[in-house]
């Protein structure tokens, strides 16, 4: 967490607003347009669980405070429900900005501000990479092992198994080679400075 007491220093130097530009490009939006009305935070169903309100994230991006934005739990708690995006009076794709920030956080090696959410997304994509489709049981197990939250939610998992809502064996997409190629392209793009996608 930043030291909130020390003044934020803005050098006024001629450097471009790099971080703002990157986020704008990735989310195809203009964060500079944000006039901080707070309607995004007001309507966000998960704002209560965030360390920075969505409005504050927009301000961090405007001010180039990348580290704070990327380390926040906000971007991981965000469920991408698009309430903010659909209500923004400045037509900023706020949910898209959250996507961009999550992606940048991962690429730049930030530990997800919410560990469980990070493990979940990783586990989910691992499954897709492996089978071409998501396999809930394997996802559940991988997530449990990844977070070591072994006992949480077991009753629900058990019920779902009992009701045959989770298949024991995964379904597999035959064109797995294509799926693998897409994952390889994703990794390759990231190495080539994937932030600038």
């Amino acid at each position: 967490m930043p030291n909130l007491k020390s003044p934020l220093l803005v050098s006024g130097g001629p450097e471009k607003r790099v971080f703002l530009g990157e986020v704008d490009a990735m989310a195809a939006t203009h964060v500079a347009a944000c006039y901080q009305c707070g309607k995004c935070s007001g309507g966000c169903p998960l704002s209560f669980a965030m360390d920075y309100q969505p409005r504050q994230i927009m301000r961090l991006v405007q001010m180039g405070l990348a580290d704070e934005a990327l380390a926040s739990n906000t971007i991981w708690v965000c469920a991408t429900c698009y309430t903010c995006t659909s209500r923004c009076p400045r037509d900023i794709d706020i949910a898209g900005v959250m996507d961009a920030l999550r992606f940048m956080a991962r690429r730049r090696g930030f530990r997800p501000g919410d560990r469980n959410v990070g493990v979940f997304h990783r586990s989910f994509l691992n499954g897709v990479k492996r089978f071409g489709r998501s396999h809930e049981l394997m996802l559940f197990v991988e997530y449990k092992l990844g977070t070591m939250r072994l006992t949480e939610d077991l009753p629900l998992g058990a019920k779902m198994l009992a009701k045959n809502k989770m298949a024991i064996l995964p379904e597999i997409t035959k064109g797995r080679a294509e799926i693998a190629a897409l994952f390889r392209e994703s990794a390759r793009g990231a190495e080539k400075g994937g932030d600038k996608l």
């Binding site: 991408t80 996507d99 994509l125 499954g127 897709v128 071409g132 392209e185």
Partner: peptide
């Protein structure tokens, strides 16, 4: 025929290429 996962939230939340590529397939 031989559909694959759309990538769901996990792809678009963390990987802009896969977020497009999986549903595109």
């Amino acid at each position: 025929p031989d559909w694959n996962c759309c990538g769901a939230t996990s792809a678009h939340a963390t990987d802009p290429f896969l977020a497009f590529a999986l549903p595109a397939r």
